[in-house]
Structure formats: structure tokens, C-alpha cells
Nucleic acid binder design. Structure first.
Length: 428
RNA sequence: CGGGGCGUGGCGCAGCCUGGUAGCGCGCACCGUUCGGGUCGGUGAGGUCCCGAGUUCGAAUCUCGGCGCCCCGACCA
């Protein structure tokens, strides 16, 4: 039931004065998100639909490589963090409960999985495992910025691979590379998988998934068949510095700003050793569990999509992420034949399982069209007096605002749904 | 954490320099009008002027202190 007259979609003509990034401006203007404080954001209904589309894609692909979904708490005892040496991190929120016990708000969940691995995994027979969850992360960022791009609280899908040895970790890591590639392709984003710094996570190897866009905080160096974090490229033996340019075998690398939407790490045994997560092998010998950690931020995927796919009128979602497939605009006032036709069309689409947002508000046509373009659903159907005259529903494809052939206004509902679906499948 | 900027109705802003009790556009409500690109006209509601202290007969405006937010940089497990 999604009639715009009954739906919370607070669109704005003007962007918040302090917004700089395109995604920040458009997501607020389109009524997707609203701010509560620095780095603290609420996802409004339409925005949350988009977020959940990303979540659904991720879930399918992690399930597909054998991931087991669970849920670990955000509020945690400080002790495991002390043991791994991460209690000192400044971005970690620390607090005390009423008894004075030391707690933290988790910024990621290595300590938690490892803690449970130590309790529950005893034998080589228990391995390998991929465990994951979608959970809020809390980080006391020195500088939150650009709407939902860098926040102090955000949902992350983090999975953790648990293996017997280095070879097992390598295999789990490769499975994640495959899953992540597929996830990114399915979102419709332009992206690069780049080699990255292992950073203070420590570990044996890492990649980042970068979505190029102007608001990006990172930089990727790109050449034919080559993509890397700029810092990594600078350190590469194949790359030489030429003034402020980077050359690879004499060919210049292009440098693009990008958002880091996901990252994957080979952790090794750093956490399992610190938290004593071990297993016994066939000979009864004890070994630390080999671990990998794999994160992806749906909010950043959403913001990156807005950055990459928008124009002066608003957002133009890749179809995999759109809040609704169809934005149906009724032009006539209640009681007119054209309005009745629109009502009927809405019911038919809905009954046919099409995800449709129905603009049944009593507003001027221009305002409805403007809102539709702001929100950016891939297909806009318009029913007005003209439709009654021509017998066709006007179809407009959001990306590029191209007109598509009209659909018959009267006819078998099943055929209408089929036609819409066919059109849908042809969209980017 | 260093630098810069900003806090006035839901959003965007003016007023502050030169103190006299708050105004504009959009939005919102109602009436009429219009109905294929943010229609037009009228009426109306809505504000602790970020907070506190001070100066003053009087503070949105001046002084001091605090808080919040944004941008650039540093940082980014």
C-alpha cells in the first residue's frame, strides 16, 4: 500500500544550506534521510527501502557462499578489546554501566566472533565456517561528513571466515572476492576492486571495493588492467613518480576520487591468538583459527549510487536499488475519468506484484513530475486526460528522461504487468 | 586535533555594524481559481532569535562563557 498521499516522503525544493556533496543534497531533498546530529542520521521510509535493497543483495550472495547469518551485540564488555589491544583506539566509544563495569560500543565485531569461536569451536571438524551479520557499528569519528557517507553510526554487513590454516583462509578469501564482485555488479554501481593497505587491522592481504565519484574521500590509481589504492600504487615497484603524475611502465595512471564501499582482509591469527580461539587437529595438536574479515556498508553503496547516477533533476537509481520500480502519476482530480483510470491502473499493477508508488495527491502536475524526478524511480507512468484520448499510459524512463512506447490503458491486467516487467528487465 | 564559517518558524534567508520587542520567499491550513511541468488571488496559523551570565530603562543586535552544526586539512581498524 503505497499511496503518496499517505506516505512520509518529505521532499524539499532547496537543499540544506550546509550540504556540499551531491548525495547529501539529493538524499535529503528526495526525502530519503534526515539528520539528528553530527554523523547521526535517520533513514526515512523511502530511503530505508533502498538501504534494504542493498542488504537483500548482500544477504543472497553471502548466503550463496555458505555464510550463516546471526546477530552479535553492539554493547559489549571491554575485556576482549583489552586483550586484542584495541581498547586504546580513540574512535571506540567507551562507557560504564550502573555498576561501573567497563563497556564499549562495538566499531566492528572481530572481538565478538572470536570470543564465540573460542567457546564453540574445538575440533578441526568444526571448521571452516563463514559467519556474518548486519549490525550497527559505532565510531567516534573525528569528522563525520557528507550526509550518510561518513557517519558515527551505520549498519555494516561484516562476515568472518574461520579456517584451519592459511590455505583455508585463502580459499575463504577468494570466495568472498567472488561474492563481493557479484554484489557490486548487481547493485549497478561503477566500481573497482583495488589492492589496499592492511592498515592497523594487521594481516596478510586486503582489497577495497571503491566506487568512483566526486565526493569520494579516497583515491584510486587506474591503468590498463590495473587498479589500486593510490598509496599502494606509489609504493609499487612497477610505478614511478613523474612530477605529480604516476607512471606505470611509462604509461600514466589516472587518479580518481572514490568512496570505499567495502573491504576485505586476511586477518590471520591475530585475533584468535589474542582471544585464545584454537582447535585441535587430527593428531590432537592445538592451532589458532585462521580468520578473515569482510565488510560492506549498505549506506555507502546507496550514497555512491546517488553520486554516480543523478542529474539536475534528481536521482536516477539503477533498477536494483530503486525504492520503487514504478512511480505512477495521476493527473486528474478525484472523480474525473482520468483519475479513475489511474486508480484502476494502480490496483492492477499492485495486484500483479509490481512495486509501485502512486502519486494520488491533489497537486499541480509540475510538482508531481518534479518530485518523481527527484526520487528517481526508473519508470514513470503518467495517466491524464491525454491517456484517455490516446488509450495509452505514458511511459518515461528516468535515466535520460527518455520516452518509451506507451502501454495500453485498457486491456488484460496480466498483459500490462507483463509489459511493465519486460520494460523493467531492459533497464540498467 | 589545526584552520575557516555558521546557529533567527519545517526549508532557504534578511535584520545585528548604528540596541527600541522580529520580517521575506517557499512550505503549511482554509476559501476561491487552475489542472500535462513546482498555477494564480485572498485569509490565516506557526518563532525559547542555540543556551547561560553580564551591560542597559530596554538585547536577535553589545560583552563574556558554553553548546551545537558545516566546510578544508590531518585521521579513517
Amino acid at each position: 500500500m503505497t499511496r503518496l498521499s499517505e506516505y512520509l516522503l518529505p521532499t524539499e525544493k532547496q537543499a540544506p544550506a550546509d550540504a556540499e556533496a551531491i548525495s547529501h543534497k539529493l538524499m535529503v531533498r528526495a526525502g530519503l534521510i534526515r539528520q539528528m546530529g553530527a554523523g547521526m542520521w535517520t533513514w526515512l521510509p523511502a530511503g530505508w527501502r533502498v538501504h534494504q535493497r542493498v542488504v537483500a543483495i548482500i544477504r543472497e550472495e553471502i548466503d550463496a557462499i555458505g555464510g550463516q547469518e546471526m546477530l552479535m551485540p553492539v554493547l559489549q564488555p571491554a575485556e576482549p578489546w583489552r586483550k586484542t589491544g584495541r581498547l586504546e583506539i580513540e574512535e571506540l566509544f567507551k562507557l560504564n554501566d550502573r555498576k561501573g563495569s567497563e563497556l564499549v560500543l562495538a566499531m566492528t565485531h572481530e572481538e565478538a566472533v572470536t570470543f564465540h569461536a573460542a567457546q564453540t569451536i574445538n575440533s578441526y571438524r568444526d571448521l571452516p565456517l563463514i559467519l556474518y551479520h548486519f549490525q550497527v557499528k559505532e565510531r567516534d569519528e573525528p569528522r563525520p561528513r557528507a550526509g550518510v557517507l561518513r557517519t558515527r553510526e551505520f549498519v555494516m554487513k561484516d562476515s568472518y571466515s574461520l579456517d584451519r590454516d592459511r590455505a583455508g583462509l585463502d580459499a575463504s578469501y577468494e570466495m568472498h572476492v567472488g561474492a563481493y564482485d557479484t554484489i557490486m555488479q548487481r547493485t549497478g554501481l561503477r566500481f573497482y576492486r583495488v589492492e589496499s593497505d592492511v592498515g592497523m587491522m594487521g594481516g596478510l592481504g586486503a582489497h577495497e571495493y571503491m566506487a568512483p565519484c566526486p565526493a569520494g574521500e579516497d583515491e584510486v590509481a587506474l591503468g590498463p588492467g590495473y587498479a589500486a589504492n593510490v598509496e599502494i600504487a606509489r609504493r609499487s615497484a612497477d610505478v614511478e613518480q613523474d612530477g605529480d603524475r604516476l607512471l606505470m611502465h611509462g604509461e600514466p595512471l589516472t587518479i580518481e576520487p572514490a568512496i570505499e564501499v567495502g573491504n576485505i582482509f586476511k586477518l590471520g591469527t591475530r585475533y584468535s591468538e589474542a582471544l585464545d580461539a584454537t582447535y585441535l587437529d587430527e593428531r590432537g595438536e592445538e592451532h589458532p583459527i585462521w580468520m578473515g574479515s569482510y565488510g560492506i556498508g549498505p549506506a555507502r553503496v546507496v550514497a555512491a549510487a546517488v553520486e554516480q547516477f543523478s542529474d539536475e533533476h534528481g536521482i536516477s537509481w539503477p533498477r536494483a536499488l530503486a525504492p520503487f520500480a514504478v512511480h505512477l502519476v495521476a493527473l486528474g482530480r478525484p472523480g474525473t475519468p482520468e483519475r479513475d483510470a489511474a486508480d484502476r491502473l494502480y490496483e492492477e499493477l499492485r495486484a500483479g506484484g509490481v512495486d509501485v508508488l502512486y502519486d494520488d495527491r491533489e497537486r499541480a502536475p509540475g510538482e508531481k513530475f518534479a518530485d518523481a524526478e527527484l526520487l528517481g524511480c526508473p519508470l514513470r507512468l503518467t495517466v491524464g486526460r491525454r491517456s484517455l484520448e490516446s488509450g495509452e499510459v505514458e511511459v518515461q524512463v528516468r535515466r535520460g528522461r527518455k520516452d518509451a512506447p506507451g502501454l495500453p490503458l485498457t486491456g488484460e491486467p496480466a498483459e500490462l504487468v507483463l509489459a511493465v516487467d519486460e520494460l523493467w528487465q531492459s533497464l540498467p
